[in-house]
Design a protein around this nucleic acid. Sequence first.
DNA 1: ACAATCGATAACCATGTGGTTATGGTTAAT
DNA 2: ATTAACCATAACCACATGGTTATCGATTGT
Lengths: 107, 107
Amino acid sequence: MRTEPTSVFKALADPTRRAIFERLSRSGEQTVHALTAPSGVSQPAISKHLNGLKSAGLVRDRRHGRETFYRVDPTGLASLFNWMDYYSHFWHERFDKLEDLLKRLDQ
Amino acid sequence: MRTEPTSVFKALADPTRRAIFERLSRSGEQTVHALTAPSGVSQPAISKHLNGLKSAGLVRDRRHGRETFYRVDPTGLASLFNWMDYYSHFWHERFDKLEDLLKRLDQ
DNA sequence: ACAATCGATAACCATGTGGTTATGGTTAAT
DNA sequence: ATTAACCATAACCACATGGTTATCGATTGT
């Protein structure tokens, strides 16, 4: 695959946008209204952030009446996983599994 | 740990900066001069990018005479690994290993 | 001693970005 | 039929960002 991960890195570089993504990951599908409430920014700001996440392939939307539900698209992180997996070889050849690295970093 | 990964995401979101990081990963320690040559941008631009990577904890520098050598600091990616590991639980509960997810995404 | 090289910094510029308020189009509620 | 709610878009603003050229201090080479 090896797709260009720039858009994904950019989308996740903003704390507000990452908070939206994390909330959708934890709590599942949410309306714009529900995402706006605890965010501390205006509804148009949330709409723009959601559009950014959508352009990066990280979320999908579903219209139902006057509401729009957003949910995480897990495949959107493929480029990120690929990038980290690919370059981890150069940093830590001694780790033959990414999982091992994760365990060590947790300590 | 669960440190704030914003600075790392930001640092890697720029293609020029990511190219520098990737080159340092592949080829090891490099001077600013060596990094500037194939980059397509000016030396001050490279210096600024290196400073950004350094602030994010992704590289370290070593002065030797009039040259400055930069190298990857592998621990700088800890927050990124942590973030991805933590949230991968919410996306794909059925994957009990991150490694499995990587394999599937490669197809 | 003098000249050249390396790399960081300053000053500047164009563009991008994250926020706002205002508004309009749909849909739901009264 | 009106009114209210939901969400996207437009217009705008302040600031960040990625680039440039000019320059300077420090080191190396002649």
